[in-house]
Amino acid sequence: MIELIDVTKIYEVNKKESVRALSHINLKIKEGELVILKGSSGSGKSTILSLIAALSKPTSGEVLVDTKKISKLPDNFSSEYRRDNIGFVFQKYNLIPNLSVKENILLPLVPLNLDAQSMHQMSESVMQRFHIEHKQDVLVRNLSGGEQQRAAIARANINNPKIILADEPTANLDEKLSLHFIEMLRELKASNKTIVIATHDPLFFGLDFVDREIQVHNGSLVL
């Protein structure tokens, strides 16, 4: 499903300085697998996620998803790929604060120019599934952290993606809400989605439905 082959990512901070975030990584994730990436801050977890999402391009090496080479897609196509295949739950949720929950959830569909009916149906179903429909007309900036989290997950699922990526999903949640998130995760896993989570929250370690935990250290995988 997802395959990283000899991937190196170097960030060029400026002309002289550069940061080697990942070096020669090889990683294979099968369809329906749930993988946890763990490791200290700055080890390169987020970088791996953004490479899988085609949000950034590797300096060398290849990223394949469904045998399709996404590491070298032109900008428009990498967006289309994300739109059709990826649901991304960001660390800071990345919702637009001055739009309502429903508007935020519908954002990925805006460029598709669908008819009003199917837009409505799709948003209703994800909002129900992630228990946020009672807040659908509230501006996001007036939501609590947990509600924002659920809105973000709903948005990541509106296009019914095959792959779900989550970056530090529980960093801003208390323990109760974190456990709630883990329950949602279990449900997603049951619907046979491929899931990759970057976290250093110990709550995730040793869960029964997690297939693999991978340690990232200084830009390399510890196997």
């Binding site: 060029e12 391009k57 300096t59 060398s60 070298k72 032109p74 900008d75």
Partner: peptide, 17 residues
Amino acid sequence: DLNATTQKQYLLEKQSF
């Protein structure tokens, strides 16, 4: 050069827009 992974090529891709 679409196959290049250099900064220069990425910049060109943006400039083509």
